[in-house]
Design a binder for these strands. Sequence first.
DNA 1: GGGTACCGATTGACGAGTCAATCAACTGTC
DNA 2: GACAGTTGATTGACTCGTCAATCGGTACCC
Lengths: 199, 199
Amino acid sequence: MAREAAPERRRQILDAAVRVFARQGFHSTRVADIADEADVAYGLVYHYFSSKENLLNELFQERWSLLLEAIDEADRSSSTPQEKLAVAAGFIIDSYRYDPELMKVIIVDVTRAADSFGRTHLEQINAAYTLIAKIVAEGQAEGVFRDDIDSRFASMTFYGAIEQLLSGWIFGLIPATDRDLDEARGLVVRTICEGLEKR
Amino acid sequence: MAREAAPERRRQILDAAVRVFARQGFHSTRVADIADEADVAYGLVYHYFSSKENLLNELFQERWSLLLEAIDEADRSSSTPQEKLAVAAGFIIDSYRYDPELMKVIIVDVTRAADSFGRTHLEQINAAYTLIAKIVAEGQAEGVFRDDIDSRFASMTFYGAIEQLLSGWIFGLIPATDRDLDEARGLVVRTICEGLEKR
DNA sequence: GGGTACCGATTGACGAGTCAATCAACTGTC
DNA sequence: GACAGTTGATTGACTCGTCAATCGGTACCC
């Protein structure tokens, strides 16, 4: 294998890891599988990453930090709380749209298994919930949202609804055409903000 | 170890498995850990169960079949769709209340990793979503629920919201006193049915 | 004595991580 | 512009711990 600039090789391995993790799940992928998928020698994986778990961490951090920024940005630049939530939901759904494999890995292997690895992930994950709770709380302060539902509680509900949609797409339980993804954003937000009942 | 009637021994091992799986996660528990926790010889585990995975399956089936029954029962015996959803939510929340360890195992190790094991679990899991969707669809047919939100979609949202609450409790991200659990049922249902907006 | 509960040492596979060797590209020197 | 020395990328065979599952056996009950 010809020499490459280090950053490219690193990326090549990360990308391969996403594909393999998505296909087999973290626990049943051998680092040999990753090396094969990346077309790289076994040992090289350890030249760039300290362990298999480290590889997963990098993937998670890379995407999750974008998510945190996006939610924060939504809070700062959108007007109504409904719109803020819509932007946040849109970002998550688009993350799935453009890199379903990465989102599958994050949801199935990280988000869920959050305490088998160190508590580091958990703090990051919780940060997202907290940002969403902040949006809800602001909506309540403005008098747009009812205040008999705890903002933290509402934030869990909102995030959970979205994550479940992704799970549905990931496991093939609900249709995931481009059109479905387009509609999903509005549907979650409407469900959570306006409710299922006729008004 | 004295001889026992087979069903008791079996139960003893299942109960131990729940505790260990909940503590360490499925992948990092050794069957020796389960045997120790159950105060039973290593080999006895294989006398009653064909594999470690089989043990997990049994635990899942045992609880999930009750869940399916409960939702079905809710649909048949409650009056309004809101109340049906409340009964379903209540069952899941109470499952956590009375056996948080089992629910942790089911959510963290089964529900999420649903396709690394055979597709069997997935069908069972999907059956629950389908039952909930049925309740929503009936509500729509009665004119109680709006019909511009697909029932299947609404069901994912509803279930996802509840599961996320359990996750929050499991990972210690939101308070889980008895009072919180009591309130949760009404809160999810109100959030999903009535929405966050002031009316 | 036949069947069932129970025991735990042993086996065999598997897979993460190591390491010594090789190789390709620079860097400076004359 | 060639040659030696240096650096760090790349290789993959090997080590070494781990663990699921097996198996040959004993104890007990009918």
